[in-house]
Design a protein around this nucleic acid. Structure first.
Lengths: 340, 340
DNA sequence: TATTAGCACTCAGTAATACCGAGTGCTAAC
DNA sequence: GTTAGCACTCGGTATTACTGAGTGCTAATA
């Protein structure tokens, strides 16, 4: 059977109607809803075909139809194909100049959640692709050193290290010089055994200290846990199909734990620029089998990026969501460009 | 009417039973449950008295009794009075030495949530009481300076400042010296106009820069938003009395927003060492009117402390919760002592 | 051949009803 | 002061009937 023009129109009408109401839609509704001027009986025949083709589902014998995952997929693909779905620009209520990364991200998550009425999540840019731009070791106390690492993209990380003896000014200068000479411009992955060995040799008496320092730097950069912020998680209560305690609970757990969701967001083509949509069972993680998840990527600079995700019911307003995400991506891109 | 020994015993029995089951408890249950050897009829008479006195409530004519807020309050006060409710020590699964403040806190919140089966929340220690221990300004780029502020308690804050021109080594040394001379040992509140004016005078050509720096330091320290971490928020679904979407939603919103809850935790006697219990309507905030909230204080050092809160149903296992909190407080205290 | 009107049928949701049982208050007896 | 007994209350559940939205199919129509 072929999916001709008319069937497409009817399918789209069914989906759009269902997106609005969340109720199964019947033939009579479609007959009035569209400008096809067809009777409900004709629509019924077509719907019967569409069901056979797997695009729609009848929850029970005497009910209307709802879109299947396959139906949503077709709909979303059509949406994504016609690129001109521009939305009115949403303004982030943040003045980026003095704000810090984390508050920008929190704000962005909130804006998304409020705008779409779904739950949102945003991850901080991943660090392990960053190169080290600048290192600094400072004596704070007689028994503690402060290490500051600045990465490209101006991400600052710091740590305190305990030492047994106070170090002289000259030693500090020497260590600082050495750290910068050896490590500047390197990626975490590039700090391998041979670099570390060279540094330890150079450090002489302080080779143990250097080991400690490298250790701390490594763990602080590695920090496998991606920082992530969520917002609007209670929005899920707005959708009756998610609003039962079992579903809500697993979903909220996932939003609280974050780990699984960040994995999902980062999973495909790491440097992907596009927008990814997971509809229901398409999602590889259990917690969102009853939802749809839309993810997008924002860029801070070359090779450094974070992800934004929206989690809502299957009957998500994909058009709006995709528009909003496109928008926010640009907004964030420009904020970070300016900031640089 | 007097609250004699027997009435107390019966009240306690009612409360304990209700804590376990969550169902109204009847006279027959109590008659068997206690070792008073009284018939259900006698218990009924006593219950009738207890109701008149306001300690218990009958949800409807033909139901058993449940504790009123006043009843809980009496029970909790009795609990708190006998100090010897020590719990087995709960071990935090964290090796504090290389861990950073935020992961310790997150872990603590999680431990609490898992141990108690309620939702938990923990705030980072408040900064504005901190004295500045050490300041450092570093040129990172030709056009950006890094400021690092270390506060007593070894809390590190940093920020990048944009500058128009590269500064000479000597200038940097001078500025650093000056910042430390003027600001070391000061509280944020003590950095007043007169100190700032003196510094600007001293700074000469760089007075504008100094203003900028002070500004950034101030806003970064001030950061009115207290950092807070929650855990186990989905535990609330375990209690039928909270498990309806309206209640769950407001509660989860509060846990997500955090602001209101941190206010609650910090509200009474700021330096209070004790444990505070808000039962139902006793709570000043709307979101927790159907819950009980127990808060405690942990200390990092002199005058610097954070809060831990547990949010659960009215029929919370107060004994366990108070024990767990006492325990965690000590655990945290010792971790931070050691760390110092 | 495609469309439509008409009709019998299905089935979730809701309202009405009856029933059960846990629990009470009260009275009279111990 | 305590207890046994009994009538009464009332939330919860199961049963039943009813309603209405929606379908599939058939026969008539353009």
């Amino acid at each position: 059977m072929e999916l001709d023009e008319r069937k497409m129109t009817i399918l789209r009408a069914i989906i759009q109607n269902y997106l609005e109401t969340g109720e199964p839609v019947g033939s009579r509704t479609i007959s009035k809803y569209t400008d096809l001027n067809l009777s409900s009986a004709t629509i019924r025949n077509e719907m019967s075909d569409l069901e056979e083709m797997g695009y729609i589902i009848q929850p029970h014998t005497s009910a209307g139809r709802i879109p299947s995952d396959k139906g949503y997929r077709l709909y979303v693909d059509m949406l994504m194909a016609d690129k001109q779905n521009e939305m009115e620009s949403l303004k982030l209520q943040l003045n980026a100049k003095s704000e810090r990364l984390d508050s920008i991200l929190k704000e962005a998550a909130k804006v998304i959640a409020v705008n779409t009425n779904y739950a949102s999540m945003i991850t901080a840019p991943r660090y392990h692709r960053h190169r080290i731009k600048f290192l600094q070791l400072t004596q704070v106390d007689p028994d503690s050193l402060l290490t500051v690492v600045i990465l490209e993209g101006n991400i600052v990380k710091n740590n305190l290290i305990h030492v047994d003896e106070e170090l002289s000014k000259e030693t500090m200068l020497k260590l600082n010089l050495m750290l910068n000479t050896f490590l500047q411009g390197l990626d975490l992955a590039e700090i391998n055994a041979s670099v570390m060995q060279k540094m330890r040799n150079e450090a002489g008496v302080y080779s143990a200290l250097i080991s400690d320092i490298l250790d701390v730097i490594a763990t602080s950069l590695e920090s496998e846990e991606v920082e992530a912020y969520t917002s609007g998680s209670t929005n899920i209560f707005k959708y009756p199909e998610l609003n039962d305690s079992a579903k809500a609970s697993t979903l909220l757990s996932a939003l609280e734990e974050k780990k699984e969701l960040t994995d999902l967001m980062y999973q495909e083509g790491d440097s992907d620029r596009g927008i990814q949509v997971y509809i229901g069972d398409e999602s590889p993680i259990e917690a969102t089998k009853d939802c749809s998840v839309v993810t997008a990527t924002y860029h801070i600079e070359e090779g450094v990026y974070g992800k934004i995700g929206i989690i809502g019911p299957r009957r998500m307003d994909y058009e709006k969501v995709v528009g909003t995400l496109r928008n926010l991506m640009e907004e964030l891109d420009s904020i970070f460009r300016k900031d640089k």
